[in-house]
Design a binder for these strands. Structure first.
Length: 489
RNA sequence: GGCCCUAUCGUCUAGUGGUUAGGACGGCGCGCUUUCAAUGCGUAAACACGGGUUCGAUUCCCGUUAGGGCUACCA
């Protein structure tokens, strides 16, 4: 392809993400959204969000809200927005057209009849299919009948017809029309004038009307593609380029779903994952940027993105790597920004009686390197916001006795109380306390530092005592050491 | 069952007709260290199987096996 041609083509790139609002915005959907977004941005094209809400029974506005909110939170903003329920007239026009040109017809078989036919086919080990005898019913007769009962508009699937298309990720894919299940449905007809389009039909119309150049969607849609191509042919519409993304799998290699724990984006948000971590992780799941790097911002992903580097096989969603990326982004986030993001998590646990931003900031700075998720903050740093509770046995370091611990704490208490408020910082505290610790038996620093740290935190595992002392301040620190000594008496 | 898709360490992946098959997460070990992290260093770990093609296949072809998707008046 010449440079001229490729530059020319780039102008017309239009892709879409087309969710149906029948459930929460799922991790698998994030990757579809992301790859569409990246492809559009990488090629100077447009990213379209289309809500496929033709199924009135199952579509819920709360789900649409969840989808929009999730996409915004991830920063994958769309250029154009459509809702299928607002385009019914358009579909009706196309339905009339396809009816008129004779490639579709009204079917009046009842659901019961269809079910019976299906069961019979299964029983006799035939492939389920419905080649409908209503094909021959004249439209005028059908229209009359429609005044009394509803019908279903079906496509006249041609027999033994080869359909093939090039998938940008997988190459050429072939289907025979005989394997499509017969005369597949296009729309419901509730009256001679009221039509409700079904998935395959609405998709074809919208992809055409929205001038979609590339359909990038999940692998589960491969088998819908030949049906859509058939409809395009009868309506004389161009076929877009197709790229079917591999699925995201649960650890047991099945399709990721709710039963594998959290799956919706908002749940990940609640668990304290950062959008940049989620995006970085999902981008690298089933795609690689041709370098050994692991960390990519959204803009870097746009620069690197290439459909050809997408994997063909499904990828398991591996929480450990997500956690690693999340902790990376937490460690590298500016402290003010991180503090703002974490405050709601502290509030949720009722740890913030007053919002002392500078104090919280110091705490966050200290916990930053050991945080995998924002939601861990409460458990880790509660002792900064309330008096810790713990068993006195926890104060014991190795083979120390209670009286040794009491002595050790008294040394700490005296040492600390000698330091001026103005010099009460980690460097000074470390210098002076370590000097004191050197006097301990076997020069075992733990004899002084372990009981001190427990007195301050009540926790077996925590950051070092010097930093904690500085943040807690002289007064509060002394109070906690004193109360530890009392505990031992 | 039928149709379709897929197959490199446990996981995400790089890679080539001839490589010591590379990286990352996780694991393990060591260093630092009062504990926990962070961090540095090191280490174990893979070409699903069987046929071809070829001087030579992890790489190309065919089959087997395994996994997945679809098989609606859902999308």
């Amino acid at each position: 392809m010449s440079i001229f041609k490729s530059l020319f083509k780039r102008k017309d790139i239009r892709v879409r993400f087309a969710p149906s609002p029948t459930g929460l915005f799922h991790i698998g959907s994030v990757r579809s959204t992301l790859f569409n977004f990246l492809f559009a941005k990488a090629n100077g094209g447009k990213f379209i969000l289309r809500i496929e809400d033709t199924d009135q029974e199952r579509s819920k506005s709360e789900y649409e809200k969840d989808i929009l909110e999730s996409i915004k939170w991830l920063g994958l903003n769309w250029d154009e927005f459509y809702r299928q329920s607002e385009r019914m007239k358009l579909y009706a026009d196309y339905i009339k057209k396809i009816l008129l040109n004779g490639s579709a017809f009204y079917c009046f078989h009842s659901k019961e009849f269809l079910k019976k036919e299906y069961d019979e086919q299964i029983k006799t080990k035939k492939n389920p299919s419905h080649y409908c005898e209503f094909r021959k019913l004249p439209i005028s007769d059908a229209t009359r009948r429609l005044n009394k009962e509803s019908g279903i508009i079906r496509f006249k699937t041609p027999p033994d017809f080869e359909i093939s298309f090039i998938d940008l990720i997988r190459g050429k894919i072939n289907f025979n029309s005989d394997t499509l299940g017969g005369d597949f449905s296009l729309a419901k007809a509730e009256s001679p004038i009221k039509f409700i389009p079904l998935y395959n039909f609405a998709v074809v119309i919208d992809d055409y009307e929205m001038k979609i150049s590339h359909v990038i969607r999940g692998e589960e849609h491969i088998s819908n593609t030949p049906k859509q191509i058939l409809i395009q042919r009868e309506l004389n519409l161009p076929t877009p380029e197709y790229a079917h993304l591999p699925l995201i799998l649960a650890p047991d290699r099945s399709k990721l779903s709710k039963r594998h724990g959290a799956a919706s984006v908002m749940e990940y948000r609640k668990m304290g994952y950062l959008p940049e971590a989620l995006i970085n992780f999902l981008a690298l799941l089933g795609w690689n940027p041709d370098t050994d790097r692991e960390i990519f911002s959204l803009n870097e992903l746009i620069k690197k993105f290439d459909l050809n580097k997408i994997q063909k096989s499904g990828a398991i969603f591996n929480t450990e790597k997500l956690d690693w990326l999340n902790s990376y982004y937490i460690k590298n986030m500016a402290i003010d920004e991180l503090t703002k993001k974490i405050i709601p998590f502290l509030e949720k646990e009722g740890l913030l009686s007053e919002n002392n931003f500078e104090y919280i900031k110091k705490v966050i700075a200290l916990e930053k390197p050991r945080l995998k998720k924002l939601s861990e903050i409460g458990k880790r740093s509660a002792y900064f916001f309330k008096i810790p509770e713990y068993r006195s046995e926890l104060l014991i370091w190795r083979d120390m006795l209670f009286k040794d611990v009491a002595t050790s704490l008294k040394v700490s208490l005296e040492t600390i109380s000698l330091i001026n408020e103005t010099d009460f910082n980690r460097e000074n505290l470390e210098k002076i306390l370590l000097k004191e610790a050197e006097r301990a038996k076997n020069k075992d620093r733990g004899r002084l530092l372990w009981p001190l740290r427990i007195a301050l935190t009540g926790l077996e595992k925590s950051p070092g005592p010097f930093e904690i002392l500085e943040i807690l301040g002289k007064k509060e620190s002394l109070r906690r050491v004193e109360s530890a000594i009392k505990k031992l008496a």
